[in-house]
Amino acid sequence: MATLLEVRDLRTQFTTDDGIVGAVDGVSFKVESGKVLGIVGESGSGKSVTCLTIMGLNDPRATTSTGEVLFRGEDLLKASPRRLREIRGNEIAMIFQDPMTSLNPVHKIGSQLEEALTLHQNVSAKQARARALEMLTAVGIPRPERRIDDYPHQFSGGMRQRVMIAMALINSPDLVIADEPTTALDVTTQAQILALLKRLQEDFGSAVIMITHDLGVVAETADDIVVMYGARIAEQGPVDAIFSQPRHPYTWGLMGSLPRLDVAVERLVQIPGQPPSLLRPPSGCRFHPRCSYAMAKCISDVPPLERLDYDPRHSQACHLDESTKAREAAALLTTFSAAAS
């Protein structure tokens, strides 16, 4: 499989009135063509900023980014604004979190879709409209020929997110970045949108970066998972490895806080405390103030992101010794399976 996108040691800093915020701090990952990468973490873990940096959509005056974002070998951090505009919406498209505010209220749905097409392709107005109709049909908008001239406020949240998906896929991009695409929607709509994204991803053959705070969202769709905490990567690896052998206490916390219908867990485990401030992050391991396994070393030394001996595809950044981690992970998974039986 060819590597489509490779992010190497990405660091993004925002200059604010209070000081410098290190929103992304040394993040590296790869996305293979046609595969789905899930980036999981709490609010403020740097997952969205990572993707906005890939797209070059941060405010250029307040942001500095270093490292490399190689898209088919071309470093997007060094690309000209013109080149970035050619790529955005054409080769890399983005679906945003809140469909209620992400569509322009004064333009018709159809013209917003057609704009995405005509910015990149030399097509006639008639062709653009036909393509927009085709996309609306593909994302399951009923009677698209009647809805195409409606305005966004005439659509429900789920329908608007379908429009956003249609807009993202209209140029058949190689990579789609979906930034919490279901967070703002009803639970029943969430499942529909996820199923739609999965189906279209297969039809269009696009690679997807799925950003979410919900491990459950990526469990079934992703091929690989990156768990981010406090602007850094806590753990990353193939989805089955993360779920069968989680090796970071933060990942355990995320798994423990998943509500499961099939398991009679007495109560959901919650991770105590708040996500760290990126203005003044904690020393050493950024998770140590909230970690029940924290040792003296965790406060003083930053744990490096290391590959596991027995599985080089799987990396984690935690000082705990492997036998403790294996024991704790096994215990966590047994709780689930024991409760299930």
């Binding site: 498209a93 992400s102 322009n104 209220p105 704009e115 910015l119 807009m167």
Partner: peptide
Amino acid sequence: DYVRTARAKGA
């Protein structure tokens, strides 16, 4: 947000 969407489209 819709201004960011427009930029994300490559406008």
